[in-house]
């Protein structure tokens, strides 16, 4: 064996070691989250309210808040992202206007989420006087979510063959009808995957929320679903600490004795949720595609 071959072998061995080390780190991370966290997760933990000073608190309200905020943010951002991605992929010509807007979207997607949160604080909490509330949080999450969701939907639309568009136009339909009734349904598997992946990101976001949805989770009356009552779970004007914010909050200034237990349990739930979002994004996308092309 000559020198260069030896050198090659050594280099590749080092690469393997690096990759192995990274795998170890990553495995430790995931293992740590689940091994320390999952034993603390029980049905009671998932459903009971948090306690500020004593042990045995749960994450029920935070979990509900996270889900509620996610749904609201998605409901608001989806039509906007869909419209924007339709324009970008179907109407936009290759000119300065389009490239300016694309740059703007890129800028928005790379903004630190704390900056987005501060903007939400300034606009929704202060200017619009919504206070620390579900609605401030949902609108801020919408801003946080828009660029990535737009990009994901645009990619899904771009994946639809041009033949489909031609088919619609050839029947004397408008471009818009063709897009809404033919291109979007054909892109549905990709759009759904995109929405679910974005959901994972929104679900775990905390920095954008601490000054918008707030850091407190007042008790909710789960018997009252009238959104106009302030202690109703649906009330858009109540403050709503989410799961991710809760983890940050109790670790920064929490004083309950079982703080580590609660946070590790909450972290495990959070990561588990992300894992489910990731897996289901692929699975559901594929299922929808199969359904569309299948016999029934």
């Amino acid at each position: 064996m000559n020198r260069t071959q030896k050198q090659s072998r050594t280099a590749i061995l080092i690469l393997r070691l690096i990759a192995g080390l990274v795998v170890l780190i990553l495995a430790f991370l995931i293992g740590y989250i689940f091994i320390t966290g999952l034993p603390n997760v029980s049905w009671r933990f998932l459903t009971s309210p948090a306690k500020a000073f004593t042990a045995g608190g749960g994450i029920g309200i935070q979990l509900f808040n996270s889900i509620y905020l996610l749904i609201l943010a998605m409901l608001i951002s989806l039509p906007i992202a869909l419209g924007a991605s339709i324009y970008l992929n179907e109407y936009a010509k290759d000119n300065w206007f389009t490239s300016t807007i694309r740059t703007a979207i890129e800028i928005l997607s790379s903004l630190p989420s704390v900056v987005v949160g501060l903007f939400g604080f300034l606009l929704f909490v202060i200017q619009f006087n919504y206070g620390f509330s579900i609605i401030s949080g949902a609108l801020t999450l919408t801003i946080f979510n828009l660029p990535l969701l737009t990009r994901n939907i645009e990619e899904a639309l771009a994946g639809v063959s041009d033949d489909q568009r031609q088919g619609g136009l050839g029947l004397g339909l408008s471009k818009y009808e063709t897009i809404i009734h033919i291109v979007v349904p054909a892109a549905l598997p990709g759009i759904i995957s995109g929405i679910i992946l974005c959901s994972g990101r929104v679900f775990g976001e905390a920095a954008a929320l601490i000054y918008t949805a707030g850091q407190s989770a007042p008790a909710l009356n789960f018997g009252d679903w009238n959104p106009f009552n302030i202690d109703s779970p649906l009330s858009p004007l109540r403050p709503a600490e989410t799961l991710a914010v809760h983890i940050w909050k109790i670790n920064s200034e929490g004083i309950m004795p079982d703080l580590t237990k609660v946070s590790s349990g909450a972290a495990a739930v959070l990561v588990l949720a992300i894992l489910i979002f990731n897996l289901s994004a692929r699975y559901i996308g594929r299922k929808v595609f199969e359904k569309m092309t299948s016999v029934n």
């Binding site: 039509p79 906007i80 992202a81 869909l82 419209g83 924007a84 339709i86 324009y87 970008l88 179907e90 109407y91 300016t100 807007i101 703007a104 979207i105 800028i107 928005l108 903004l111 900056v115 987005v116 501060l118 903007f119 300034l122 606009l123 801003i143 828009l146 660029p147 737009t150 408008s174 471009k175 818009y176 009808e177 897009i179 809404i180």
Partner: peptide, 28 residues
């Protein structure tokens, strides 16, 4: 008429995002 409506609708969604980005930069 559909076409005009749809074109404007999708354009306004895009302009909204543009306005948000400008808003963030100007506010901050």
């Amino acid at each position: 008429r559909y076409e005009r409506f749809g074109h404007l609708l999708s354009l306004s969604a895009l302009l909204l995002i543009m306005a948000i980005v400008l808003g963030i930069i100007i506010f901050i």
